Simulated scan of single mutants.
Amino acid sequence: MTKYPNVMETKQLIKDLVSIPSPTGNTKYVIQFVAKLLAEIGVETVKNRKGGLIATIPGQDESQHRMLTAHVDTLGAMVKEIKSNGRLKLALIGGFCYNAMEGEYCEIETVNGKIVTGTILMQQTSVHVYKDAGSAERNQANMEVRLDAKVENEADVRAIGIEVGDFVSFDPRVQLTDNGFIKSRHLDDKASVAMLIQLLKRIQQENIILPYTTHFLISNNEEIGYGGNSNITPETVEYLAVDMGAMGEGQRTDEYTVSICAKDSSGPYHYGLRKHLVDLCKTNHIGYKLDIYPYYGSDASAAMKAGYDVVHGLIGPGIDSSHAYERTHEDALVETERLLYYYVQSEFVE
Results as ranks from 00 to 15, higher is better:
Arg87Val: 02
Ala91Phe: 14
Val151Gly: 08
Tyr105Thr: 05
Gly95Phe: 03
Val72Leu: 15
Asp73Arg: 09
Gly118Pro: 00
Ile108Val: 15
Thr74Met: 04
Thr125Asn: 02
Leu92Phe: 01
Glu109Ser: 10
Leu75Ile: 13
Asn142Gly: 04
Glu154Cys: 02
Val127Phe: 12
Glu102Lys: 07
Lys114Val: 10
Phe96Asn: 05
Ser135Asp: 08
Val111Lys: 06
Gly76Gln: 01
Arg138Asn: 01
Lys114Arg: 11
Gly95His: 04
Tyr130Trp: 15
Ala136Phe: 04
Asn153Ala: 04
Val116Tyr: 08
Asn112Tyr: 03
Glu144Gln: 14
Glu81Arg: 13
Gln123Tyr: 11
Met122Ile: 00
Asn112Lys: 12
Val79Ala: 14
Gln123Pro: 01
Val116Glu: 10
Asp73Thr: 07
Ile108Met: 11
Glu107Asp: 12
Asp148Glu: 13
Thr110Asn: 03
Ala100Tyr: 01
Glu107Ile: 08
Asp148Asn: 15
Arg146Glu: 11
Gly103Tyr: 07
Val111Glu: 02
Glu137His: 02
Asn85Leu: 08
Gln140Asn: 05
Asn153Arg: 03
Asn85Arg: 11
His128Phe: 09
Phe96Gly: 05
Gly118Val: 01
Asn85Phe: 15
Leu75Cys: 09
Ile82Thr: 13
Asp132Leu: 11
Lys80Ser: 14
Val111Asn: 00
Phe96Val: 05
Ala133Met: 07
Ala149Cys: 09
Val79Lys: 15
Leu75Lys: 07
Ile93His: 01
Met101Ile: 15
Leu92Lys: 01
Lys114Phe: 03
Ala91Asn: 13
Met122Val: 00
Ala133Val: 01
Ile93Phe: 03
Glu81Trp: 14
Ile160Glu: 07
Gly113Phe: 03
Met78Ala: 03
Gln140Thr: 06
Val145Gly: 09
Tyr130Lys: 13
Lys83Arg: 15
Gly118Gln: 01
Lys131Arg: 07
Tyr98His: 09
Ala159Val: 02
Glu144Trp: 04
Asn139Thr: 01
Val116Cys: 12
Asn99Ser: 12
Asp156Ile: 06
Leu92Cys: 00
Ala159Thr: 10
Lys83Pro: 05
Met101Trp: 11
Leu88Cys: 14
Gly76His: 00
Glu102Tyr: 02
Ile82Ala: 12
Leu75Asn: 07
Leu147His: 10
Ala100Val: 04
Met101Asn: 09
Arg87Gly: 10
Glu104Phe: 09
Val151Arg: 08
Leu121Tyr: 03
Gly118Trp: 04
Thr119Glu: 06
Val157Ser: 06
Val116Met: 09
Asp73Phe: 12
Val72Ile: 14
Gly76Arg: 02
Val151Phe: 11
His128Ser: 07
Arg138Cys: 01
Met143Gly: 00
Leu90Cys: 04
Gln124Ile: 07
Ile120Lys: 04
Arg138Phe: 02
Thr74Leu: 02
Glu144Arg: 07
Lys83Gly: 02
Ala155Ile: 11
Gln123Leu: 13
Glu144Asp: 08
Glu152Met: 03
Ala141Asn: 05
Lys131Pro: 00
Gln140Phe: 00
Met78Cys: 06
His128Ala: 05
Thr74Asp: 04
Met78Ile: 10
Gln123Met: 14
Ala133Ile: 00
Asn85Ala: 09
Val129Cys: 10
Ala136Met: 14
Ile108Leu: 12
Asn139Ala: 06
Arg158Thr: 13
Leu75Ser: 07
Gly86Pro: 06
Ala133Ser: 15
Asp148Tyr: 13
Gly76Glu: 02
Gly103Gln: 06
Cys106Asn: 01
Leu147Lys: 09
Val111Ser: 05
Asp73Met: 09
